[in-house]
């Protein structure tokens, strides 16, 4: 059923570092990294007043819908999207056809700068995800924590 996304400490730290740096370099308010299936991978910047889970799910829905539209007109996908608001804008870019990098920024920065910094960050992220995928596919990697769970463990989740 497709490749499961697995995240390890090393790559997680590297991804978070790229997102943190992008937030500063682009003078952005928030930077998110979201799996195309709607799972939030990383969030950086002023995230305290944002419902990150909902944002991740809606981002994935939006990217999926735009991908569907792209295919209808003969494109593979729309790799970059910009949504401009009165005060805040949103820039989305697809990284390695697997994840979506989302930058929320205010009028204090410019779209040009955001684009430029996103390009660099997404190249770095693509490499990290490539390495991650290889690691996941390598047999004898970290054992799944779920290989050892018992039926009782699962039952206990539901005993209230």
């Amino acid at each position: 059923m497709g490749t499961q996304l697995v995240m390890y400490d090393e790559e997680y730290n590297r991804i978070n570092a790229v997102c943190d740096r992008l937030t500063k370099d682009a003078n952005a308010k928030v930077v998110f990294l979201v799996d195309k299936n709607g799972q939030l991978i990383s969030a950086s910047g002023q995230t305290q007043n944002i419902d990150t889970t909902s944002l991740a799910s809606l981002t994935a829905g939006n990217v999926a819908a735009m991908g569907g539209l792209a295919k209808l007109i003969g494109e593979n996908e729309f790799p970059n999207q910009i949504h401009e608001g009165a005060h805040e804008s949103l820039y989305m870019t697809i990284v390695g056809s697997r994840v979506v990098l989302v930058v929320i920024f205010e009028t204090s920065t410019s779209l040009g700068l955001v684009r430029l910094r996103v390009k660099k960050a997404s190249d770095e992220l693509a490499k990290i995800f490539e390495a991650l995928l290889k690691k996941t596919e390598t047999p004898g990697g970290l054992a799944s924590p779920f290989a050892e769970i018992s039926d009782d463990d699962i039952d206990n989740l539901f005993s209230e």
Binding site: Q4, M7, Y12
Partner: peptide, 15 residues
């Protein structure tokens, strides 16, 4: 496709 994060020790599933 579930998402297992060893770093934040989370597992996410979609139903």
């Amino acid at each position: 496709m579930s998402f297992i994060n060893y770093s934040s020790r989370e597992i996410n599933c979609k139903i």
